[in-house]
Write a protein that binds this DNA or RNA. Structure first.
Lengths: 254, 254
DNA sequence: TAGTGGTCTAGACCACGAC
DNA sequence: TCGTGGTCTAGACCACTAA
């Protein structure tokens, strides 16, 4: 039987709870500076490591971020990019020469960095989906997407290298309508999609590329595009900054 | 960020990197016990807090978990529940008296705990969507879903209290086909859905209810169900253990 | 009971940011 | 320059787990 619930709570958790309350109550708003480590030390009569541990709780929950030499601040959340999973892939978008990404970033300034376009042997699971023979090459397009100069997504796209050879798909600029418009010209336009969604904490590499604060998970979206014949023509693995995105799927009951 | 020439990388990050390498190379598999804090202290000649800090990196990334009195262990990942976002809501499922949740947990033992069914004033944003007058009550159903005795999801469902008054929707057991079948009997069966997906780190309350290890984010799914007349009849806010779920949406290009 | 991780103290030097 | 957080040390007591 847990008695004396309040007295047994570790100091750092009580300090953390007090800070959270202060944030929840609006005493500190997004971007505001919180009391520093030395403030907490004197206010609660604890050692520095204990005060730091309290901040560690807030950082792990994504509520606060520390800036060296400046202080600890309440996290400011980013613009919620509304990614309309189904409608954004309408033929009307890319068929008319539009960019899917530009549609997502409406009202902001979208930018795409091409990190590299290579021919590689794809991971076994992806090669399998694409129906690539053992050792056959895939065209791999790695890109980073930014909104208002802030990175929000990494994407790695896999296609059959033989299929797309000699087309703009192997070039940084894929032309109006992008990859899907080029695939349609090859008679392999996608008509059906499957998106798988996961979430986890980023590795250090992903955190750096996306400029993520501590306590920010990533959302993984893996999209497979199918032709009318049911053949998978593209697998796109995306890593999204979870603090920047809201994914939306709207559909009729099947 | 660590653009330094290997010499200036903090000790705890180098130790963490070594541990990660050992895990990635398969030297330690899921569930294996890692070297303890005192092992790291003697192996690297560091103080205990430094060794702990190294483990902190792995825990924050969800790669390891510490068990008091036992050691630090490589995380074991859970069964990937495949939640087929669109097909699971087919009329054929709930119309035939089936349970949507039972369909998700195929091959496992599904269980639902009813945490409470109350009448409350819903949060403004939800009351707005449901078209509730100012101060009108909502029927709020809070549940926890378990698979093989392990909690994987929390759900809070909001409906118009006047609409559902006197129906099994206000009872713990909603009968065959669940809420949607009952709504259909009221002439308010859902035919269209919108799901919004977000991800963030859990608060301590959510982490406790879902039994989450440190470094495990939650996925938030907010579903709104619409009738044929376009009226929202239910808003369901779900909190998912990200390590247990894969969300899947499969659809034709619109 | 022996060993583990959880909490906590009281110091230290450093790099960085604001002034 | 001065205060900030980042890193690090060398101890301490405790609760818990496993043998």
């Amino acid at each position: 039987m847990p008695r004396d619930v309040t007295g047994r709570l570790p100091k750092y958790l009580r300090i953390a709870a007090a800070l959270k309350d202060a944030i929840a109550s609006g005493e500190y708003g997004p971007g505001d500076r919180l009391p520093g480590e030395s403030d907490l030390m004197s206010a609660y009569g604890v050692a520095r490591m204990t005060a730091r541990q309290a901040f560690g709780v807030l950082r792990a929950e994504g509520l606060a971020e520390a800036r060296k030499g400046a202080g600890v601040f309440v996290r400011e959340f980013r613009v919620g990019i509304r990614r309309r999973g189904i409608q954004r892939l309408a033929v009307e978008v890319w068929g008319a020469g539009g960019s899917i990404w530009a549609a997502d970033g409406k009202g902001h300034e979208p930018l795409v960095e091409v990190l590299g376009i290579t021919e590689e042997t794809a991971p076994a699971s992806i090669a399998d989906v694409l129906g690539l023979e053992d050792g056959a090459l895939a065209c791999v397009r790695r890109r980073r997407f930014l909104l208002d100069a802030q990175p929000v997504m990494l994407a790695t796209s896999y296609l059959d290298a033989v299929l797309v050879a000699g087309t703009p798909i192997t070039e940084p600029d894929t032309g109006p309508g992008g990859i899907y418009a080029r695939l349609a010209e090859l008679g392999a336009g996608p008509v059906r999609f499957r998106e798988e969604i996961r979430s986890r904490m980023p590795g250090p590499e992903e955190a750096a590329r996306l400029g993520l604060a501590a306590g920010t998970p990533v959302v993984l979206v893996c999209r497979t595009a199918y032709t009318a014949e049911g053949k998978a023509v593209e697998v796109n693995e995306m890593v999204l900054d979870s603090s920047a995105y809201v994914l939306e799927y709207e559909f009729d009951a099947p």
